[in-house]
């Protein structure tokens, strides 16, 4: 084989590979790219479905599905079904999806979360040429208003159930020094940073999505009453989130509830099933900075009011009769 023949043969191999790649991507699903550089855009709804005056007459869907962008879905439980109106998140990577939280209602008849998620996975799979998509069922933290429909997924094929104990959560994400660690989590090419954020609940995590620059803060920071069972842990978690935001660009902070009105410092009463004057769910870095400043100012249990959130710091709500 002379030099010319060799070069020609090498070029033929290269061209053949490009042809095969092109043919495969035309026929099947091509590999989705989730570059960490830049920021994948997305949109929030102008207003979320926010319940109704009469829960009995409510005909909104049990689960509101909002497509933030092609591979990111934000779901909300109908407030008429449960006043928590909890948000849930479905993130897609190549051939794998991550469901964070499962709402406040167990009954599939009232709250068919499994069907909604299955339909979303099917339609997403058709759109992007995917047929075998694994689902990871995870939780932001271990409070019952966020795992009630967990059971709907236990018999789902091709599904990983992270588990509902602290130890199972830590093992799945790979924490060895919770909460300070930052875990790099690869969701089918879509990179997340996971860190511990206890304070509201002792197993809580936050997720940062490098592709969208969304920072998901669960129940530890949202527009509402921040119920803190451990002030020191929460203060450290808020600072940990701030440090994360120093190292990674943040587009929005997203979370689990809306309990505030649009009037600064005014929340809806607990148990409200109609919130016609809801502010957006997403929050800004200036709000996070305000929470960081609050950690320096607050030293005693009590209720502290801020424009966009209320801090319920270790407010005693029960004690034992045990002698």
């Amino acid at each position: 084989m002379n030099a010319k023949q060799s070069m020609l043969a090498i070029l033929m191999v290269t061209v053949s590979l490009f042809v095969v790649e092109g043919a495969l991507s035309a026929v099947g699903g091509k590999v989705l790219e989730f570059p960490a550089d830049g920021r994948a855009a997305g949109e929030f709804p102008d207003v979320w479905i926010h319940g109704s005056k009469s829960a009995m007459d409510n005909d909104d869907p049990a689960v509101q599905v909002h497509r933030y962008n092609d591979h990111t879905f934000i779901l909300r439980e109908n407030k008429a079904i449960n006043y928590e109106g909890a948000f849930m998140y479905l993130f897609f990577g190549n051939d794998v999806a991550l469901l964070v939280d499962q709402g406040s209602t167990s009954s599939p008849a009232l709250f068919p979360l499994r069907k909604v998620v299955d339909d979303l996975i099917d339609s997403w799979g058709r759109e992007f040429g995917r047929t075998d998509i694994r689902l990871i069922v995870a939780n932001s933290h271990l409070h019952g208003d966020h795992y009630a429909a967990w059971n709907q997924f236990v018999d789902r094929p091709n599904t990983v159930m992270v588990g509902l104990t602290h130890e199972e959560m830590m093992a799945f994400w790979g924490f060895e020094a919770y909460p300070d660690e930052r875990i790099e989590f690869d969701l089918g090419g879509r990179e997340f940073v996971v860190t511990g954020t206890p304070g509201h609940q002792a197993s809580e995590i936050a997720l940062y999505d490098k592709w969208t620059d969304l920072l998901y803060t669960g129940d530890m920071f949202y527009r509402g009453r921040l119920y803190l069972e451990d002030w020191e842990a929460w203060a450290a978690s808020i600072k940990r989130l701030r440090a994360l935001a120093d190292d990674y660009p943040v587009a929005h902070l997203v979370n689990n509830h809306i309990e505030m009105t649009r009037k600064p410092g005014v929340d809806y009463p607990i148990g409200t099933t109609w919130q016609p004057d809801e502010p957006p769910m997403q929050m800004t870095m200036s709000m996070l900075d305000q929470a960081v400043r609050a950690t320096a100012d607050i030293s005693a249990p009590g209720i502290y009011t801020f424009d966009d959130f209320l801090i319920y710091n270790e407010v005693p709500w029960a004690y034992t009769t045990d002698p």
Binding site: S104, H143, G144, D145, R225, Y227, W317, A318, Y319
Partner: peptide, 18 residues
């Protein structure tokens, strides 16, 4: 308990009596 009543009521608004 009576003294703490006003603070006790709103202290945890999430449904957590599971």
């Amino acid at each position: 308990g009576l003294l703490l009543l006003p603070a006790a009521f709103p202290a945890h608004g999430h449904l957590l009596n599971m």
